[in-house]
């Protein structure tokens, strides 16, 4: 992938990621999150992870975000009114986040392999076939555990939404 495309998609992803956090209207935040995930899936595809990129679009930009929008509209949330801000807490959290970013960037800058280029792949990679073979051989037990987990989540959601919390 040419580096121009990488920077375009990375910039789109980061700008819409910031918009998720700064938007006052939850619906606008959710829609920005969709664009952010689409940019992220483009980055996955630039790393030759086509299957993960498609899953990202289908599961996150499709299912999860529809769920988010559904809940926001169900709760009928409007844009928040401006409340009295706790400026000490605000400045403290911004400082902590900034320190985390500096720390991460320093670690990445000092890592030797971070300055190396990606090695070339042998041939066009048959992504889905390889992942599917791994999924049903070495990762068979985790796959079944995750199936049980999804079932438990479904039952839990039904119970949570049927009973009134007191």
């Amino acid at each position: 992938m040419p580096s121009v495309l990488f920077w375009i998609f990375a910039a789109v992803m980061l700008v819409f990621g910031v918009l998720v956090v700064v938007n006052r209207n939850p619906v606008a935040s959710a829609l920005s999150l969709v664009v952010c995930f689409l940019g992220l899936s483009a980055l996955f595809m630039s790393l030759n992870a086509y299957f993960i990129g498609i899953i990202q679009v289908l599961v996150y930009a499709g299912a999860v975000m529809v769920l988010f929008l559904f809940i926001i509209m169900l709760l009928d949330l409007r844009a928040e009114e401006c409340r009295k801000m706790n400026w000490v807490a605000f400045a403290g959290s911004a400082l902590v986040a900034f320190c985390l970013l500096i720390q991460l960037l320093t670690v990445i800058g000092r890592t030797r392999i971070a300055h190396e280029h990606f090695p070339a792949l042998a041939a066009p990679v048959d992504d889905v076939r390889n992942i599917g073979q791994l999924l049903f051989s070495s990762y068979n037990l985790p796959l079944q555990v995750i199936a049980v987990l999804v079932l438990v989540a479904t039952i839990g959601v039904i119970i949570l939404s049927k009973r009134q919390l007191r």
Binding site: L14, L40, S46, L101, L104, I113, E116
Partner: peptide, 22 residues
């Protein structure tokens, strides 16, 4: 691209999410 550029983008995205939580 280098590995570092992807890691930097990932670090910035993580920080955005972290700042949003806080």
């Amino acid at each position: 691209m280098t590995l570092g550029s992807y890691l930097v983008v990932s670090a910035v995205l993580f920080t955005i999410g972290f700042a949003g939580v806080l």
